[in-house]
Amino acid sequence: MTSIASGIAALGIAIGAGLAVLGAGVGIARIGGSAVEGISRQPEAANKIQVAMIIGAALIEGVGLFALVIAYLLQNKV
């Protein structure tokens, strides 16, 4: 591979990883924001909301990490 091609590939991987993190971040932010909203509206349901929030955040985080792992694996191919 020429150096320009490998550079572009590396750039692609980096952008891909960044986009994945961006998506996960937006998702978790939405969950967190909605959870805070819900808790402020119904403080007595705080425990249930927190549990649901953590599950949701963990699942989104899993997807984000999945993308990061793929980016990491691709990194060795550059």
Binding site: V69, Y72, L73, Q75, N76, V78
Partner: peptide, 12 residues
């Protein structure tokens, strides 16, 4: 040089 694949270190 890949950051986390430095030397003998492979994360996965």
């Amino acid at each position: 040089m890949p950051l986390l694949a430095a030397g003998s270190f492979n994360l996965l």
